[in-house]
Computed example of a mutant assay.
Amino acid sequence: MAKVIFMTKTNGAVEVEGSSGSLMELAAANGVAGIDGDCGGVCSCATCHIYVAPDDFEKIGAPDEIESDMLELDDNVTEFSRLCCQIEVSEDLDGMTFVVAN
């Protein structure tokens, strides 16, 4: 089980808990503002763009080529950007905070 925090522009900190699926599915199921997941998690829309804390980025890992290509379409990309549909929920994420880009 992992507890994570999503920092949103409208709702502030939203703590959620889950044990399976993607971060996008977890965020959407808990009504996290700014995580839309329009494509359903197939890495084709970038409506689940988040920023990973620099200290946690190595633990999460860099995006693969398909995700990197999708991120290039977003104007707000940083070196710590990820699409949360591509990050699986696991105990490794427990305690992490993610900033919603949108």
Rank of each mutant, 00 (worst) to 15 (best):
M1Y: 12
A2N: 06
A2R: 09
I5V: 15
F6K: 12
F6N: 11
F6I: 11
M7R: 15
T8G: 12
T8F: 11
K9I: 03
K9Q: 15
N11V: 01
N11F: 07
N11L: 12
G12L: 07
G12N: 07
G12S: 08
G12C: 03
A13K: 15
A13W: 00
A13P: 06
E15I: 08
V16D: 11
V16K: 11
E17V: 12
E17M: 12
E17N: 14
G18R: 06
G18D: 09
G21Q: 08
G21M: 09
G21T: 13
S22V: 01
L23I: 08
L23S: 06
M24N: 08
E25K: 14
E25T: 12
E25Y: 05
A27W: 10
A28K: 15
A29W: 02
G31L: 13
G31F: 10
V32A: 08
A33F: 12
G34T: 13
G34L: 09
G34I: 12
I35C: 03
I35W: 01
I35R: 03
D36T: 07
G37T: 06
G37L: 02
G37Y: 03
D38P: 01
C39M: 05
C39K: 10
G40C: 11
V42N: 13
V42H: 09
S44E: 15
S44H: 02
S44T: 13
C45F: 04
C45Y: 06
A46I: 02
A46N: 10
C48T: 02
C48I: 01
H49I: 01
H49N: 03
H49V: 01
I50L: 00
V52G: 07
D55Q: 14
D56R: 04
D56E: 11
E58H: 13
K59T: 15
I60P: 04
I60E: 06
G61C: 08
G61F: 03
D64R: 01
E65P: 00
E65C: 00
E65D: 15
E67V: 07
S68W: 00
D69C: 00
M70C: 05
M70F: 00
L71D: 00
V77N: 00
V77E: 06
E79T: 13
E79P: 05
E79N: 13
S81P: 07
S81I: 08
S81K: 07
L83S: 05
L83Y: 05
L83F: 09
C84F: 05
C84A: 04
C85P: 07
Q86I: 04
Q86C: 13
Q86W: 09
Q86F: 09
I87L: 06
I87H: 03
I87C: 04
E88G: 12
E88W: 04
E91I: 04
E91G: 14
L93H: 11
L93T: 12
L93C: 10
L93P: 10
L93G: 08
D94S: 14
D94F: 10
D94M: 08
G95F: 12
G95H: 07
G95Y: 11
M96K: 06
T97E: 15
F98S: 02
V99M: 13
V99A: 14
V99L: 14
V99S: 14
V100K: 08
V100D: 05
A101S: 14
A101C: 12
N102Q: 13
